[in-house]
Nucleic acid binder design. Sequence first.
DNA 1: TCGAACGGTGAGAGCGCTCTCACGATTGCG
DNA 2: CGCAATCGTGAGAGCGCTCTCACCGTTCGA
Lengths: 348, 348
Amino acid sequence: MAEPNGGNGRGATLEEVARAAGVSRATVSRVVNGNTKVSPAVRRLVEREVARLGYVPNPAARSLVTRRSQSVGLVIGEPAARLFEDPFFPRLIRSIGAELASRELQLVLLMPLSPAEESRIERYLTAGHVDSVLLVSLHGDDPLPAALARRGIPVVVGGRPPASADVSYVDVDNVQGARSAVEHLLKRGRRVVATIAGPLDMGAGTDRLAGYRQALDAAGRQRDAGLEAVGDFTQHGGESAMRRILAARPDVDGVFAASDLMAAGAIRALREAGRRVPDDVALVGFDDSPIATTTEPQLTSVRQPIEEMGREMVRLLDHARPAGGVARRVVLATQLVPRHSSEGGPAS
Amino acid sequence: MAEPNGGNGRGATLEEVARAAGVSRATVSRVVNGNTKVSPAVRRLVEREVARLGYVPNPAARSLVTRRSQSVGLVIGEPAARLFEDPFFPRLIRSIGAELASRELQLVLLMPLSPAEESRIERYLTAGHVDSVLLVSLHGDDPLPAALARRGIPVVVGGRPPASADVSYVDVDNVQGARSAVEHLLKRGRRVVATIAGPLDMGAGTDRLAGYRQALDAAGRQRDAGLEAVGDFTQHGGESAMRRILAARPDVDGVFAASDLMAAGAIRALREAGRRVPDDVALVGFDDSPIATTTEPQLTSVRQPIEEMGREMVRLLDHARPAGGVARRVVLATQLVPRHSSEGGPAS
DNA sequence: TCGAACGGTGAGAGCGCTCTCACGATTGCG
DNA sequence: CGCAATCGTGAGAGCGCTCTCACCGTTCGA
């Protein structure tokens, strides 16, 4: 790692490399970008000078002419509480980062913390800092996807957007996942099955609730508003939702929580109320997050392929390239992972 | 949000705004950057055209001449396992992001997943994509800080770097935090206190171990290699470390784990071995992460001010600006948060 | 009353790169 | 053996911005 210019922070330019190698700027550019043909002799010569001078292309200059930044924005529109607790985000970020890296793309992380931030972020994204945008955890009818589409910026959303606009998205099969969780409880003889739903302004919230209802309907069970409490995906939200359910329906003997975090909160509320898990109340979570093996008892949960989701989002970005194209949807399967929290039948 | 050019993805340029407003490019630039004096009349005129045309400065062009990118790289050199489980990282990332945003800086997230990635990341950082770099969770003697310093790129490290080079860093007082945890256990009458240490190639690992030893020495207690087991900050690592301790010293009645995750693992190992927490073995963790309130019993833990750490790292970046300057160190205090896992004295 | 000082504005160079186009040298084909 | 096609290379324009410098009109002090 020689630094002929004394490490002054000013890297060598194409021009300098060209002069040192006795060729033109264009030729050096060709070697560096390796696309067009250059004679082997010249190529070797240039490569040597590039190495010797520690030449690294100036991204701003390149970006100015190519109109590409080789970076992708990831917007996480999630309130702080869940972001901190839920391993969902680190896992997703990580898989997205890895998949982008394999395409020589960089990840720029954007977290709107306030309405003011939102407009700052929109400006950032539309200014050309990024070539495309990934959006996760959209709430309500966020105007961002449409605003970006209008500017011609490719967008892929993670999780079905509530206002299912004309955007590409990757989602897991929340309806089916929730349904299988509830069916699991029913199959084990639970008679009064409640649900702690996620926020109803998110696809993951409404879809998991829909799956719960479908399972009850299919089994010919009575539904009851007292058996449905809405949480916010956090532990605290799950805890208070469970309390509400216990108050409305003390006879509850099975609960499907739309996230593991909320299930963990439910365990606390149940314990506080003197109910044993799974003996008195069986419990199934969603996510199969690490927390599922930390709780006592360990949590039966619906696994969703988070890494696959991240990877798929990046892949959709590729397809979004040619002229907008049609919106694509990818829906990934989930899988029930049985653990202790739903063991045994009722003490019949 | 008018888009006079039909949303073709090509934003208006300075030139176009200037022509529309009947002024020169330089004047528009002055208005947009708001530094030098422009007459109020002209300013209003230009601002109107900027709004009408939806002008947003081209970051590449600006960056090319200013030699600044207005973005900051955050390198997280942490293996996947811990990154997924530990809320430490989301919290840190979030606070750093917020603090950067308030300075109109953007966060670019870099996660080296392989040795090949590392060199790609080094190239990325030295190419001028970012103005400065934040490094977190450095292991061993990572060459990155030195390489960046050589290129004149300001660097701030989170957590004392193992090879304490001439870099600025922000750290929590791990020695004192660990010491207070162990003193807490001793004060409550525990006689055989073990520790589950973090990786010894990290400052947080060695410092917390040092604090443990200091506390024992100060209390005149015998140290024993059998009472020190090394983990990797993960739950799984903590579990197997706890097993090793139980095997070597079945008489252990107090454990300080260098992370909450490892403490959670220790609980499982203890339960498996038929020991009750805190009755038979009292336990203290480190981090005061959300998991501390999820475990049964809830975990006494040493709180570290993660958000403050992120904020302080960004602040140090400011000071790093003028010509390298001397390296600064900021050490933040920790605080013991008592919960059930260390309650009661031994059954004496 | 006159020159100096100053505030507002425009002209123009240039940041480092890519890419088109032109050009000379080599090759292939009839 | 001549002409066209091909290949490797260089010249030069231009991406959109900032910033220096020069210029003009006004104001102010002596």
